[in-house]
């Protein structure tokens, strides 16, 4: 009788594994099947010639039929979100790990936990209502790249705070004691000893944040992304983005060509995100090594 139960256990666990692997294989296989054939320069730049593509990169030429503006838009979003959230996240993480104590620490940590749990559509709604509110003051302000970038910064902020804080707190106290015995001020201990050691952990948080900012759709669809905008000329312009392009194509495609473009876009985004997540380990090892052992 026992043997039967054992077999049942092995069998059902095996089924679970197969289901999961099957689903992932189905998903990636389906995207590769439909997306690979369209993967190429044409996917990004439409029918433009090589020479014209160079012009596109220097903003001399507009792409009408291709992913290029969406790719640029996504890059700009990631850049804006990171450049806003990184200093804030690092600062708050350092404060929570090294300075805050007692009740303040508990309370602040709790709030960042809360922020981490807020659904991205609600963050988007916040960005949108903020725009609505500001619109009454400055009537020229409408949902735009700036608002989206800031909202995404808010979305990734808790990841950065958390990873920075944990990376620092995981370091042994002996480091702090050694540095103190050498006559280090607290700030010097943090900058010269602790942060370099915590870098791999912090770095993984940064990569996670890049991935989140690049893939999120809910936030940007409330704060200024549109289907066709070209490359934004200022922070106050509308813009395109890869995940929104995918969403839009799925519901609004009018012919086979557009659908193909959608598959191509989905494959590109999948590749970017998977590379980010898997490549992170490699880069983070290198980065910390350079900082600690290479003294030029």
């Amino acid at each position: 009788m026992n043997r039967v139960y054992d077999c049942l256990l092995y069998f059902s666990a095996g089924i679970c594994g197969l289901l999961l692997l099957g689903a992932v294989a189905g998903l990636t296989g389906f995207l590769l099947w439909h997306g690979l054939p369209v993967l190429g320069l044409e996917l990004f730049f439409g029918s433009l010639k090589i020479g014209e593509i160079v012009d596109v990169i220097f903003l001399q030429q507009v792409v009408v039929d291709g992913l290029w503006p969406a790719v640029v838009g996504t890059c700009l979003l990631v850049l804006m979100a990171l450049s806003t959230a990184l200093p804030l996240g690092l600062g708050a993480g350092i404060y929570l790990a090294e300075y805050a104590g007692g009740k303040a620490k508990t309370l602040f940590s709790l709030t960042f936990d809360l922020l981490a749990g807020v659904p991205s559509i609600v963050i988007g709604l916040f960005g949108f209502s903020l725009t609505l509110y500001l619109h009454r003051q400055f009537s020229s302000l409408t949902p735009c790249l700036l608002i989206s970038g800031l909202s995404l910064a808010l979305l990734v902020l808790p990841y950065l705070v958390r990873t920075t804080q944990t990376a620092l707190e995981d370091l042994p106290d002996s480091l702090r004691l050694t540095a103190a015995a050498l006559g280090a001020e607290k700030s010097a201990t943090i900058i010269l000893v602790l942060l370099p050691q915590a870098l791999p952990g912090i770095f993984s948080g940064v990569v996670l944040a890049i991935g989140r900012a690049a893939e999120d759709t809910a936030v940007i669809m409330l704060t200024g992304v549109v289907a066709t905008a070209g490359i934004p000329r200022s922070l106050f312009d509308n813009y395109e983005a890869l995940p929104f392009y995918i969403f839009y194509t799925a519901s609004q495609f009018s012919d086979q060509h557009e659908l193909q473009q959608g598959f191509g876009a989905a494959l590109v985004l999948l590749i970017i995100c998977v590379l980010l997540f898997t490549g992170a380990g490699l880069i983070r090892k290198k980065a910390s090594y350079r900082l600690l052992y290479h003294s030029k």
Binding site: L27, T217, F247, A266, L269, L270, F277, T278
Partner: peptide, 24 residues
């Protein structure tokens, strides 16, 4: 291998689940 695959899955964008969902 399975652990790797699962970790990689955390990186799959939700919009891609939706996209493949619609067509598959």
């Amino acid at each position: 291998f399975l652990h790797r695959v699962v970790k990689m899955m955390t990186g799959i964008p939700t919009v891609i689940y939706g996209f493949v969902g619609i067509f598959l």
